[in-house]
Amino acid sequence: MKMRICCTTCPNECELDVEVDENKHIISAVGNKCPRGLTFAEKEVVDPERVLASTVRIDGAAHNCLLPVRTDAALPLRLHFDVMRQLAACAVSAPVKMGDVILPDVCGTGINVVASRSIA
C-alpha cells in the first residue's frame, strides 16, 4: 500500500511517499530530508501519535476560568477522546505553575497531562 505522510517533527514539513507491506512495515520511503522523517513515518503507519492539547477548569484565578494543558509527549491518536473525557471531569485550583502535572500516567501510557502555563 502507498501512503503520503507529512512529517511534523520540525518546521520543514517533509512530505514522504512511503510504501508499506501487509504487516505495516515500510518497504520504501522517499521525500524525507533527515532520518527523523523515517522514524516519524514508521510510527505514523502503525500507531499515529500526536501531542494532545486542551483545557481544564480552574477555580480561584483572577482572570482565567480555564487552564490550558497538554500531554508531555505524543500520545497515540486513538486515546485522544479517552483523555478528553478525563479532562472534562477534571478541575484544578489556582495557583498553578507551567509543567505541573494535572493528570498523571493517562491510560497507563506513562504520559502525563501538564499545565501549559502558570496562573496565579
Binding site: R57, L66, R85, A88, A89
Partner: peptide, 13 residues
C-alpha cells in the same frame, strides 16, 4: 459551557 466541570464529566463516564 465547553467544560461543564467535574459533575458533567462523571455523568458521561
Amino acid at each position: 459551557a465547553v467544560k461543564e466541570g467535574p459533575e458533567a464529566g462523571k455523568g458521561e463516564a
